[in-house]
Design a protein around this nucleic acid. Structure first.
Lengths: 108, 108
DNA sequence: TTGACATATGTCAAATTGGGCATAATATTA
DNA sequence: TAATATTATGCCCAATTTGACATATGTCAA
């Protein structure tokens, strides 16, 4: 994890809400893009799961994972990788293009 | 790692070339998509690096990583995650949309 | 050829991520 | 309201991923 991400975690743990993370924390464009991707994928995952009428437990089963991890996936928790996020999307039937679209989706 | 991915590794280690991995190994659509994404991102990474006139060492430095890992990234090695692949693309200046496009790119 | 540079591959300790459990918080329904 | 279902969060530690290193292989010009 990068320095800035650690800093953010510390701040959030201390009860701060980070309004505009991008320049407040001076994230590099790449770091910012990564955060945005995580958010975009998280949201798509939740939408797809709900559209499919699945509970987190049901999705976890399809994924071969646990409810708690699905909750973290959808929360964009720092402990989940893009890798797992993408696996999860594929697990509920998203195509490669669907994932690409989700990835590029606006989140601001 | 999944069962089938392990199987593929064993086969490749034994000297086999996997022509059409998709149905020979009976990968699920999701697993196949994941493999394709890895390949697509790997290729985009190498193209971008070469276009930028960078060596693997130079890119490794920008990434905060090592030459060997960059080599593995470009080789689509099983030991690299989509996460790192995406970080690498962002590190050489790809935008979120660029990554999305790369991800969806045809590889067959 | 040799030498210099670039890339590939194997290994391993350290760091990150994952699964699963317990439990808390938050709906939702009777 | 209480009971039930769903989602969130913290924790542990096993598994995976990573950076770094050594070394092998490949490339190309002198």
């Amino acid at each position: 994890m990068t320095m800035d991400a650690k800093k953010r975690k510390r701040l959030e743990a201390a009860g701060w809400t980070v309004g505009d993370a991008r320049d407040f924390l001076k994230l590099s464009p790449g770091e910012a893009a990564l955060v945005e991707m995580r958010i975009a994928l998280s949201r798509s995952l939740r939408e797809r799961r709900l559209d499919a009428g699945l509970t987190q437990i049901a999705l976890a089963k399809q994924l071969g994972s646990s409810q708690s991890r699905v909750a973290k996936l959808e929360a964009g928790d720092a402990s989940v990788s893009l890798e797992l996020l993408i696996r999860a999307l594929l697990a509920i039937g998203a195509s490669r293009r669907d994932v690409a679209n989700a990835l590029a989706r606006r989140v601001a």
